[in-house]
Design a protein around this nucleic acid. Structure first.
Length: 861
RNA sequence: GCCCGAGUGGCGGAAUUGGUAGACGCGUCGGACUUAAAAUCCGAUUGGUAUCUAAAUACCAGUGCCAGUUCGAGUCUGGCCUCGGGUACCA
C-alpha cells in the first residue's frame, strides 16, 4: 500500500477500535467528565441520510477532542425503535415489527460504524428491549402514583386511515404528520399526563440553559403563559355562573356579549327552548368538522344565539350569550367575555351578527381600523376612565375581588399530554382494569411485555390491535387474584426518548432506571446535538419527565440538557428550473401569471448568471436556482454509503463539517467533496512516499526551525479555538493552510507532523491513526495529549500596518516588532510611504488615527 | 397576520471588540508533467477604468435596497425588499 486508499485503512482501524474497545467509557470517576449526546435516532427502513452524520460528526469531534484533553467522555448511541412505520409495514406484509426493527437497527449500526464514530457500543440501548421498557413502565408508575397520569374521555384526533389517535402536534393542518391523512375529532378513553402541573417550572427552568434563544422562545410560546383574571358572569334567570378568563379585565365595560365554545358544559342548560334546535345543529356541525375544516373556514366567523343573557358584573347590564367555534373549549374556561372594541376577533363577530360595540380604550387620533388593541386611556368605563391599561387592570381586579366577581388568574396554552396510542408497537401500560377501574400492576410485575401477535390491524370499532390478544388481555389482579383486563393502548413514541439519556449512564443497572452514583457523575448532558424539529416536543417532554424524576429523587439535576445545539438541515444539490407555457419559455418571475406551466430541469451549462438572476444562456429568460429539501419524491437524496464508497469516511466527515457553519442550512454538493479528499491526499503524500509506502525522506528527527513552529502553532491555536466554538469549517480551513505551507518545506520534522496529525485526528480519525502508526507509534492516537500552542512562536518579527487616507487603504508598511507599538515611529513611517505621500501633498493632514498593531488612518482635507 | 433567522464572487463559505472584504474549498481559464488520458503540481480568477500590448501599478465601484452614526461600517442605528423556518381564532 502506497497511495492514500481510504477503503483499506478505514476498515483496518474500525476493526482495531472494536477489538480493543478503544472507546469504552472509562469506569473511574477521577477525571472531569464530558457527556456528549446525539439525539436518539429512529432506525428507519431507508437507513442513514446525510443529515444524520452531520450532527454525529460534530459530537464525535468533540468527544475525541475532550478525550485528548483528559476528560472521561460518555459518547453513546442507541435506538428509538418503537414507532409507526414498522407497524404499518407489518400490517402490509405480515412481517413482525420486531424483525423489521432488528434489521433496520443492524443496518444503522453498520452505517455508523462505517463512519468511524467513537461510540461506546457496549452502552447501546434500544427502547423496544423489555429490559429497557421495563423502566419506561416504571417511570409511568411513578407518574401514576403522583397523580400525574389519569384517564379521561377526550375528543381526540382520530385518524381513520392510520387507525390511531394522534397528539395535537402530530397533526399538521388537519392532516396526520405521518402520511398526510385526514384527521377528525372523536371522543375516546385516553391516558393523559398532567404536564400542565409543571408549566411554571418548565418555563423557569429555561432561564439557565445554554440553548439557542429561538428554541427557548419556542418553548416559552408553547407553554404560553398569560396573566389576567377569571371573572364570573351571572346568567339572567338562572343559578348558573359562567366563568371566563381574560387578559384584559380592564375592558370589561366594553363586554357587550359572551361566547361559549360549542363543547362548553353549560350550553344545553342555558339555551332557551326556541333556540335549542339551532344550537344543537351548530354543535353537531362543529363536532363533525375536522381541524382542517375549522382552519379553512376560519375566514368567516360562525355562531348561534342561545337566547340566554348574562349580567356584566361591571355595568349590571344584560348581554347576550352566543355559541361560536372561534372560542376553544380547551383554553381558559372555554368561555369568553367578548369585547369587540378591543379585540379583532370579537369585532369581526360583532359586525357580522350586529352586536353592540363599545370602545373602552381611547385610540390615538390617527388610528384607522377596527378593534384597538394598543395602549391608551380608559373611556366609557366609569371609575376606570382616564387610567392607562396597566393601572386599569389593577384597579378592576381589586374591584372584582371586592365584589366577589373575579380574581387575578394565570393561564397556560400548554395542554395536558395525550399519552396513549391505539397501536401494537409501543410500550404496554403497566395497568390493569379491575371492575373497570385502572390499577397499576406493581413494580415487581414489570416489565409487562408485548404479546406475540401476527395481526396488527386495529379492531373495526377502533380498539387497538392489542385488544385482539385475548389471552394477554384477560389476566388476573396479581394482588387479589380477581379477573382483570390489561390496558390495550400503548405509549407514544416519545415515551422511550424521554429518559434514554439517563439509561446510558448505567445501561445494565438492574436496581432502577439509572444508578445514582453514575447519574451524579455523568449528568447533566454537557452537549446535546440534534435537529431543530425537536425544539418543542421531545425537549419539553423529556424536561417534564426529568423534573418528575427529580421530585422522585431519581436524578440530581433539575434540567437534563445543559447545552443544546441544532445542526442545520442539509439540502439537496442546487437545481435549475426553467418554465414553459404552451411550449414557450417564460421567466421564472412571471410563472404565477400563467395557469399551466411546465417545469423543466436544466443543466448548469444551460444557464448563466445575469445581474442578480440566473437566465437561460444567451437569453433574458429567468430560471429558478434553488436547493430543495432532500426527499424521495424529488429524487435528490444523497446516500452517505455512496460517498463513503467513493471517497471514504474521513472525506465524508470532513466535507460535512467543511460545508459551512454547523447550525446553518446548507446545500449538498458531491463535487465539493473532491476538495477535502484532495486535502487528505496531500496530507498523506506530505508524509508517506507513494512508491515505497515508507516515510518520505523529508520526514526527519531534527528540531523544527522557528518559521515552521510559527505555522504549526498558528494552526494549533486556530483549530483548538474553533473546536471550542463549534466552528469546524474554519478549523478545517486552518489545517488546509498548514498543509499548503508545509508542502513548501524541504524537511518535515516528526515533532511537527505528530502535532499536526493530532489536530487532524478528531476530524479524520482513520487516516490520522494510520499516519500516527507509520510515524512510529504503537498506541492509538485517541488518548494522546492535545497539542498546546505557545504564544512565543506566534509573534512575527515585523508588524504589518495598512495605511488608510480618509478611510481608504493607500499603502502598507512593515515595522520591526520592537517598534510596533511606537506611535511616533509608525506614523512617521506611514507618512513616508510613497503612495500615501501623494495624498498628503494634496491636502492638509487634520487628524491621525493610530490603532496599535492594527491600522493607521490619516485624515486629510 | 404574528414571531424568529438569513441575504457577501460563477458556487459553498471567511472576516476578533467597527480596522486591508472575498481566507479555505469547488468550478473555470492558462501552464508543467505525460505518446495520450487520469492523477498530481504551479499560476490566474469581484466588476470596471487608465498607462500602446503584456507584465506591473494606480484609480473608481462593490457585502439585498435607501438613509444615518463614525477618522473608518459586511459588522452599529432607523426604514424598506427578498428568501428560509416556526406559529396560527390561546381571549
Amino acid at each position: 500500500m502506497s497511495s492514500y486508499k481510504p477503503e483499506d485503512i478505514e476498515s483496518k482501524w474500525q476493526e482495531y477500535w472494536q477489538e480493543n474497545k478503544t472507546f469504552k467509557t472509562p469506569e473511574d470517576h477521577d477525571k472531569p467528565k464530558y457527556y456528549v449526546l446525539d439525539m436518539f435516532p429512529y432506525p428507519s427502513g431507508s437507513g442513514l441520510h446525510v443529515g444524520h452524520p452531520e450532527g454525529y460528526t460534530a459530537t464525535d469531534i468533540l468527544a475525541r477532542y475532550k478525550r485528548m484533553n483528559g476528560f472521561n467522555v460518555l459518547h453513546p448511541i442507541g435506538w428509538d425503535a418503537f414507532g409507526l412505520p414498522a407497524e404499518q409495514y407489518a400490517v402490509k406484509t405480515g412481517t413482525h415489527p420486531r424483525e423489521t426493527t432488528e434489521k433496520n437497527v443492524n443496518r444503522f449500526r453498520e452505517q455508523l460504524q462505517d463512519l468511524g464514530f467513537s461510540y461506546d457500543w457496549d452502552r447501546e440501548v434500544n427502547t423496544t428491549d423489555p429490559d429497557y421498557y421495563k423502566w419506561t413502565q416504571w417511570i409511568f408508575l411513578k407518574l401514576y402514583e403522583k397523580g400525574l397520569a389519569y384517564e379521561d374521555d377526550v375528543p381526540v384526533n382520530w385518524c381513520p386511515e392510520l387507525g390511531t389517535v394522534l397528539a395535537n402536534e402530530e397533526v399538521i393542518d388537519g392532516k396526520s404528520e405521518v402520511g398526510g391523512y385526514p384527521v377528525i375529532k372523536k371522543p375516546m378513553r385516553q391516558w393523559v399526563l398532567k404536564i400542565t402541573e409543571y408549566a411554571e417550572r418548565l418555563l423557569e427552568g429555561l432561564d439557565d440553559l445554554d440553548w439557542p434563544d429561538s428554541t427557548k422562545k419556542m418553548q416559552r410560546d408553547w407553554i404560553g403563559k398569560s396573566i389576567g383574571a377569571d371573572i364570573d358572569f351571572k346568567v339572567a334567570d338562572h343559578d348558573e355562573e359562567i366563568r371566563v378568563f381574560t387578559t384584559r379585565p380592564d375592558t370589561i365595560f366594553g363586554a357587550t356579549y359572551m361566547v361559549l365554545a360549542p363543547e362548553h358544559d353549560l350550553v344545553d342548560e342555558i339555551t332557551i327552548e326556541d333556540q335549542k334546535e339551532a344550537v344543537a345543529n351548530y354543535r353537531e356541525e362543529a363536532a363533525r368538522k375536522s381541524d382542517l375544516e375549522r382552519t379553512e373556514l376560519s375566514d368567516e366567523k360562525t355562531g348561534v344565539f342561545t337566547g340566554a343573557y348574562a349580567i356584566n358584573p361591571a355595568t349590571g347590564e344584560e348581554i347576550p350569550i352566543w355559541v361560536a367555534d372561534y372560542v376553544l373549549v380547551s383554553y381558559g374556561t372555554g368561555a369568553i367575555m367578548a369585547v369587540p372594541g378591543q379585540d379583532e376577533r370579537d369585532w369581526e363577530f360583532a359586525e357580522k351578527f350586529d352586536l353592540p360595540i363599545v370602545r373602552t380604550v381611547q385610540p390615538p387620533e390617527d388610528f384607522e381600523g377596527d378593534a384597538y388593541t394598543g395602549e391608551g386611556k380608559a373611556i366609557n368605563s366609569e371609575f376606570l376612565n382616564g387610567l392607562e391599561v396597566d393601572e386599569a387592570k389593577e384597579k378592576i381586579i381589586d374591584w372584582l375581588e371586592e365584589h366577589d366577581a373575579g380574581k387575578k388568574a394565570v393561564n397556560y396554552k400548554l395542554r395536558d399530554w395525550l399519552f396513549s396510542r391505539q397501536r401494537y408497537w409501543g410500550e404496554p401500560f403497566p395497568i390493569i382494569h379491575v371492575d373497570g377501574e385502572p390499577k397499576p400492576v406493581g413494580e415487581d410485575n414489570l416489565p409487562v411485555t408485548l404479546p406475540e401477535m401476527d395481526d396488527f390491524e386495529p379492531t373495526d370499532d377502533g380498539n387497538p390491535p392489542l385488544a385482539k390478544a385475548t389471552d394477554w388481555v384477560n389476566t388476573e389482579d396479581p394482588e387479589t387474584g380477581e379477573p382483570a383486563k390489561r390496558e390495550t393502548n400503548t405509549m407514544p413514541q416519545w415515551a422511550g426518548s424521554c429518559w434514554y439519556y439517563l439509561r446510558y449512564c448505567s445501561p445494565e443497572f438492574e436496581g432502577g432506571p439509572v444508578d445514582s452514583d453514575e447519574e451524579k457523575y455523568w449528568m447533566p448532558v454537557d452537549m446535546y446535538v440534534g435537529g431543530a424539529e425537536h425544539s418543542v416536543l421531545h425537549l419539553l417532554y423529556a424536561r417534564f419527565w426529568h423534573k418528575v424524576l427529580y421530585d422522585c429523587g431519581v436524578v440530581s439535576t433539575k434540567e437534563p440538557f445543559q447545552r443544546l445545539v441544532h445542526q442545520g438541515m442539509i439540502l439537496g444539490e442546487v437545481e435549475f428550473t426553467g418554465y414553459k407555457h404552451e411550449g414557450n419559455w417564460i421567466s421564472a418571475n412571471t410563472k404565477d401569471d400563467f395557469e399551466e406551466v411546465e417545469r423543466i430541469k436544466l443543466d448548469e451549462e444551460q444557464v448563466e448568471k445575469k445581474g442578480d438572476d440566473f437566465v437561460i444562456e444567451g437569453t433574458e429568460i429567468r430560471v429558478d436556482a434553488k436547493a430543495h429539501k432532500m426527499s424521495k419524491s424529488r429524487g435528490n437524496v444523497v446516500n452517505p454509503d455512496d460517498i463513503v464508497d467513493q471517497y471514504g469516511a474521513d472525506s465524508m466527515r470532513l466535507y460535512e463539517m467543511f460545508m459551512g457553519p454547523l447550525e446553518q442550512v446548507k446545500p449538498w454538493s458531491t463535487q465539493d467533496v473532491d476538495g477535502v479528499y484532495r486535502f487528505l491526499g496531500r496530507v498523506w503524500r506530505m508524509i508517506i512516499d507513494e512508491d515505497s509506502g515508507e516515510l518520505n525522506d523529508s520526514v526527519t528527527d531534527e528540531e523544527p526551525p522557528k518559521e515552521q513552529l510559527k505555522v504549526l502553532h498558528e494552526c494549533i491555536q486556530k483549530v483548538t479555538g474553533d473546536i471550542t466554538d463549534l466552528s469546524f469549517n474554519t478549523a478545517i480551513s486552518a489545517m488546509m493552510i498548514f498543509v499548503n505551507e508545509a508542502n513548501k518545506w524541504d524537511n518535515h520534522p516528526k515533532s511537527v507532523l505528530n502535532s499536526f496529525i493530532k489536530l487532524l485526528s478528531p476530524f479524520a480519525p482513520h487516516i490520522a491513526e494510520e499516519i500516527w502508526y507509520r510515524l512510529g507509534h504503537d498506541e492509538t492516537i485517541a488518548y494522546t495529549d492535545w497539542p498546546e500552542f505557545n504564544e512565543e512562536y506566534l509573534v512575527s518579527d515585523t508588524q504589518l500596518y495598512p495605511i488608510q487616507v480618509n478611510g481608504k487603504v493607500r499603502g502598507e508598511i512593515h515595522v520591526p516588532r520592537e517598534k510596533a507599538k511606537d506611535k511616533e515611529y509608525v506614523l512617521s513611517e506611514a507618512k513616508a510611504e510613497d503612495n500615501v505621500q501623494r495624498y498628503l501633498e494634496d491636502g492638509n493632514l487634520v487628524k491621525e488615527i493610530f490603532v496599535p498593531e492594527r491600522i493607521v488612518n490619516l485624515v486629510v482635507k
